[in-house]
Design a protein around this nucleic acid. Structure first.
Lengths: 140, 140
DNA sequence: TCAAATTATGTTATATTATAACACTACACT
DNA sequence: AGTGTAGTGTTATAATATAACATAATTTGA
């Protein structure tokens, strides 16, 4: 797949840069307002860049948040094969790299024997940092 | 958990009925337009019912589609523990019941030893029916 | 049993997320 | 040089979701 090695366009670079700078996933309109001074003026410009960056696997969409996060997995050569953990409290998202789980999802087939092209798995819980912050009695 | 046995309210019933009648997941505004004649007039009424139905596990949200589907798994007593397969072509969604995968996801913990409260897994592919319809050369 | 708390309803307005449509530009390729 | 593909810029609008407020129904427990 050599789409990955194609140089990014101007807008794609701007959007990717901004996403990579952020620890947490970012929203499309937050990207927009933050890159306005770089000459990106309107939603379609952002969404086009996002679509392409997702396609080439540089970023992922966090479905449950409508947000976007840079890919942290170096050999993640395909989009749509993603495993995230999401903290309900601080909303930090981490990409999980677990070879065993990865393999299992890749090889999974349903009752009809159908194998799948991709998957998205999102785990929800409370991250370590947030667990330490709040004594268990305070959890809502 | 006895929330499940609580009788549903009027609007909750109307919304659940409509979702259960549909084989495919339905969108919030499609629900709205279809239940207007039953006295539901505005989006908040639909979204409130949806929220509650999700909370008690009667329906699930299909994150990648912004759509809602009735729960098909009888012992699915908790929300947010869902596995779906989604056909890229016809968009039919099936809830997957695979005890092995289920257990694995339930027991999964990350590098920090954190266990999760819930998860959502969506597989993407082409369902059997759609595979039969289109000879492989025609696939886009 | 009745007052308080909780849950649900109805409504208007608005916020948030995403795409359609059209005109134009940059670049790759043979 | 001409044609195709990808990218850009712009306006408008579609689609999804929630805020905020007023009121009614229901549970519940002192």
């Amino acid at each position: 797949m050599d789409k990955k090695n194609k140089p990014l366009s101007k807008n794609q670079k701007i959007v990717l840069d901004f996403i990579q700078k952020n620890k947490k996933p970012v929203k499309a309109y937050s990207i927009l307002s933050n890159v306005k001074r770089k000459g990106i003026n309107a939603p379609p410009q952002v969404y086009r860049a996002l679509d392409k960056l997702i396609e080439i696997g540089k970023i992922h969409r966090v479905e449950s948040q409508n947000s976007f996060v840079a890919c942290k997995v170096s050999d993640c050569d395909t989009p749509h094969k993603t495993i995230f953990s999401i903290c309900n409290s601080c909303e930090i998202v981490s990409e999980i790299k677990d070879p065993k789980l990865f393999k299992q999802l890749k090889d999974f087939s349903d009752n009809d024997g159908i194998k799948f092209d991709g998957y998205n798995l999102e785990f929800f819980g409370t991250c370590k940092a947030c667990k330490n912050k709040q004594p268990e009695s305070t959890q809502h």
